[in-house]
């Protein structure tokens, strides 16, 4: 069975030969190929080679487009910074408060170098593994992108105290999200993974989620021409999880290591695919023995769940993670 059949068989609830798995190894391709991180995140050919190395070593059932969300914000004028062996991070937001929102322009998808890189990397990767391994394209949610355009402080201040301006910037980021996500799907991505930290209870209140962010997600998700996987990015989502299953085009949710599979299943029902929940950022310091235990526990817990994909949760797997630690997971699952 090809990975693409295994993954979509699982999403549709059909019998598959084994549990599909994926690890967030966007950055890890730079480690495996020896490319400097800044060149890896600016040259689609190098990104492709990095992901080919990931496939050769780990053989995941899903690959990811570049997990470098600040590159989306670069197209609005934000400035990023590289530090050590890490993906680019926000250095200077395009604007710092709500007064600058009206000056923001819709980015040009076809001409901005950061967006060209993200779309072209997705296209090359999708072509390379066409009919074999699905590519999940990473795309920042329209309720999250403002934090990268105006900084977390600027966005919190606006979201909490400037409702008119908050709507204005989310109108812009929604338009961008729809165009960009659909461009990634046109480039060959099999689905979109939306990052939405401003959807989880450690960042916002339930009231903000219900009144401000969910309506925006509903409207924008409805315009996406493919399945969406929801990634809340935080330590837990259970308290707000009941708000999300109704989102249009939603095919799955990524839960965190702190979230319970049982509770998640109870809340989302039987048809939504659950992704999770080994702790990706912690894999660098765990021993293979401990990782083996974590993996077996998750597999055992979900053995009867037809809508389950084993995945690393939280952020990208760190550069310094020993390859042996990732191979432990891959071997257990491939032999399960």
């Amino acid at each position: 069975m090809q990975s693409i059949e295994r993954v979509f068989g699982t999403i549709m609830g059909n019998p598959v030969d084994r549990t599909p798995f994926t690890l967030t190894t966007s950055l890890y391709g730079a480690k495996l190929t020896g490319y400097l991180v800044p060149e890896y995140y600016s040259d689609p050919e190098k990104y492709l080679k990095g992901q080919i190395a990931v496939v050769n070593e780990i053989e995941p059932d899903i690959l990811f487009s570049p997990f470098a969300i600040v590159k989306e914000a670069e197209s609005f004028g934000s400035v990023s910074i590289y530090s050590g062996n890490n993906p680019p991070n926000l250095k200077k937001p395009a604007i710092t408060d709500h007064s600058g929102i009206s000056s923001l322009q819709m980015p040009d998808l076809e001409n901005h170098p950061s967006l060209i890189y993200l779309i072209e990397s997705t296209r090359l990767l999708s072509e390379q593994y066409k009919g074999q391994i699905p590519v999940a394209a990473v795309c920042t949610s329209p309720t999250e992108l403002p934090a990268l355009i105006m900084g977390i402080e600027g966005w919190l201040e606006t979201l909490l105290f400037q409702p008119k301006e908050a709507s204005l910037i989310m109108e812009l980021t929604s338009r961008f999200f729809v165009q960009f996500a659909n461009a990634l799907l046109t480039a060959g991505a099999a689905c979109i993974v939306t990052l939405a930290n401003f959807s989880n209870p450690t960042i916002i209140t339930r009231k903000i989620a219900e009144e401000n962010t969910i309506p925006v997600l509903k409207e924008s998700y409805a315009q996406i021409n493919g399945p969406i996987i929801f990634h809340h990015g935080g330590p837990n989502i259970i308290p707000f999880l009941d708000l999300y299953p109704q989102l249009p085009n939603l095919a799955g949710v990524v839960i965190s290591p702190k979230d319970s599979f049982e509770e998640t299943r109870k809340i989302v029902g039987n048809n939504l695919t659950i992704f999770g929940n080994i702790n990706g950022p912690q894999l660098w310091k765990a021993t293979p023995k401990i990782i083996e235990k974590w993996t077996n526990n998750i597999i055992e817990n979900r053995k009867d769940d037809r809508h389950f994909i084993f995945a690393s949760s939280n952020a990208d797997i760190p550069f310094d993670t020993p390859l042996e630690n990732l191979k432990v997971i891959a071997n257990i699952i491939k032999n399960s």
Binding site: E153, L156, L160, I203, I204, T205, I208, N236
Partner: peptide
């Protein structure tokens, strides 16, 4: 204890 969000902490600061 994660009973409050960053948004509420921010409001307290403001």
């Amino acid at each position: 204890k994660e009973k409050l969000s960053l948004a509420q902490g921010y409001v307290a600061a403001k």
